[in-house]
Amino acid sequence: MADVLSVGVNLEAFAQAISAIQALRSSVSRVFDCLKDGMRNKETLEGREKAFIAHFQDNLHSVNRDLNELERLSNLVGKPSENHPLHNSGLLSLDPVQDKTPLYSQLLQAYKWSNKLQYHAGLASGLLNQQSLKRSANQMGVSAKRRPKAQPTTLVLPPQYVDDVISRIDRMFPEMSIHLSRPNGTSAMLLVTLGKVLKVIVVMRSLFIDRTIVKGYNENVYAEDGKLDIWSKSNYQVFQKVTDHATTALLHYQLPQMPDVVVRSFMTWLRSYIKLFQAPCQRCGKFLQDGLPPTWRDFRTLEAFHDTCRQ
């Protein structure tokens, strides 16, 4: 039989394998039938036992034989799916009712789409890495894979050093008071009060500024539990706008090797808001535009502009 069945015509081998399975199933059920029926009536007890054992042995032998036959056939059938590029899912193409279940064509489209996505994502990641907005010294991507646990050294500065930098900045600007607290572990939180104009909550990670919220001088900056409320925004549109600009400033001022310079530059920039309500726009010369004062401060010249007047 093995000569007749070549690997190429394994459809026939399939048919034979299926009938071999059927044979195996029937012989197995015969074994259980025999066990169920128990010993048949014979004259002597000895004769009864002998007949039962012989019958049981015969049945087991036939099971063994059928199983061997099935194993032999299964080798002939082989593993056709392994040759297919889509592995087992390629078998979906064998489905004859394409119109009702167009799974295979959908699958191919999804596969093409995800391939393209991966390609474009790769290109985008390459481009973005050239103009990185990351403020920490180590670049993500390849190096991150190489040493996933390594922290950049600027992130593990001792708290004492952070305290020193902040208190030096505090002394630099008399109209600005900085209150440092550490409510959650080693990360510092600053409450900056600028004259009688505004209050800023600054969330630090070592000497990096992670988040800032700007609120009015008369607004509550504490949550119900007495900690600084770093999530809720100001009720006033003007301070919501300033918060947006301050977040932009965080991304603008970056110098990974000298984080203390970054904090100082940011605070110098922030200090220019002391004239938030008193400085007219340097471009249009007016105070108000759409009901808002000039909320933008140039990063270099610190001049006041409306959001839409800046260049």
């Binding site: 009688k196 309500f277 008193q278």
Partner: peptide
């Protein structure tokens, strides 16, 4: 009333511009 500002003289020019509008 201009809520964000707590010092009257700071925002007088700004208020004046608003009033003129």
């Amino acid at each position: 009333e201009y809520g964000p500002c707590v010092v009257a003289s700071d925002c007088w020019s700004l208020l004046l511009e608003f009033l003129q509008s």
